[in-house]
């Protein structure tokens, strides 16, 4: 379910806030470029990070998606982007050397962003993600709700499985019919799944309040992540890359 890979690499050890800021700064760099020649080094850099964080196994899992996205994005932008002198056109569609270059650049950009996100989730635990958000100033209840939601997703998958099995034992047939027919059979299951999910709200709220949730004052943290010179250096380097990339446009 979760894509986190429990290694002890340089990227894993970074402060969670550095990972969050670094991810955004990296994504912002990719937006600055509009030609394949400019985008390829960025993609190469992200692949380098994947090797460094030993998250290539996760990248392999989404390889078909990465290829499909590349093809789709490149094709649509090549056909619809009106730049340069077209050598082929049909209605709103046209192709020029510049539009194909732009399409390729957009495909690479989208892939670079997708892979950056995958590297991030491969080396960041849910609790680190929440800690990073709090370190960046997000109020505790908001970061808590987000991390609680992350943790509840696998639980809900299990509950959905229980509901499906219970209905199947009563005769619900989810195996026959084409894709849409089978999808339609899942619709009535939304009611018990929803009720199952929501009925614990009061219990969960009481459990939280009994543990001091909502108390005012400074909170103490069980987890501690030191912010070192490496974190500062990485943020400074990425910030510089952003400035150079955007000022050179």
């Amino acid at each position: 379910m979760f894509l986190y890979l429990p290694y002890n690499t340089f990227l894993h050890r970074l402060h969670p806030a550095t990972k969050l800021i670094g991810l955004i700064l990296l994504l912002v760099v990719t937006v600055a470029f509009t030609t394949p020649a400019e985008q390829l080094p960025g993609l190469g850099f992200v692949l380098g990070l994947a090797v460094l964080s030993r998250s290539l196994s996760n990248l392999r899992r989404i390889l078909p998606l990465v290829v499909t996205i590349m093809l789709f994005s490149s094709t649509t932008w090549s056909l619809f982007r009106r730049v340069g002198v077209p050598f082929w056109s049909f209605g709103p569609l046209s192709l020029s050397r510049e539009s194909i270059q732009y399409g390729l650049a957009m495909g690479i950009r989208l892939d670079a962003m997708l892979l950056s996100g995958m590297v991030f989730v491969s080396c960041t635990k849910v609790e680190e993600f929440a800690f990073g958000l709090r370190a960046l100033g997000l109020p505790f209840p908001v970061s808590f709700a987000l991390s609680l939601a992350f943790r509840l997703v696998p639980l809900f998958f299990t509950r959905i499985g229980i509901v499906v099995q219970a209905q199947q034992s009563r005769g619900l047939d989810l195996q026959t019919g084409h894709l849409l027919q089978r999808a339609r059979k899942y619709v009535p299951l939304l009611v018990p799944i929803f009720i199952y999910a929501i009925r614990d709200t009061d219990l969960l709220a009481m459990a939280l309040e009994s543990k001091g949730f909502g108390m005012r004052g400074t909170r103490t943290e069980y987890l501690r992540f030191p912010f070192g010179w490496r974190d500062a250096a990485i943020i400074a380097a990425l910030l510089a890359a952003d400035v150079i990339a955007w000022s050179g446009r």
């Binding site: 639980l155 799944i193 709220a205």
Partner: peptide
Amino acid sequence: TRMVVLVALTAALYAAV
């Protein structure tokens, strides 16, 4: 607190589906 819990439950349910 109940609204915070409802945020988490709605988010988790949405993501799970």
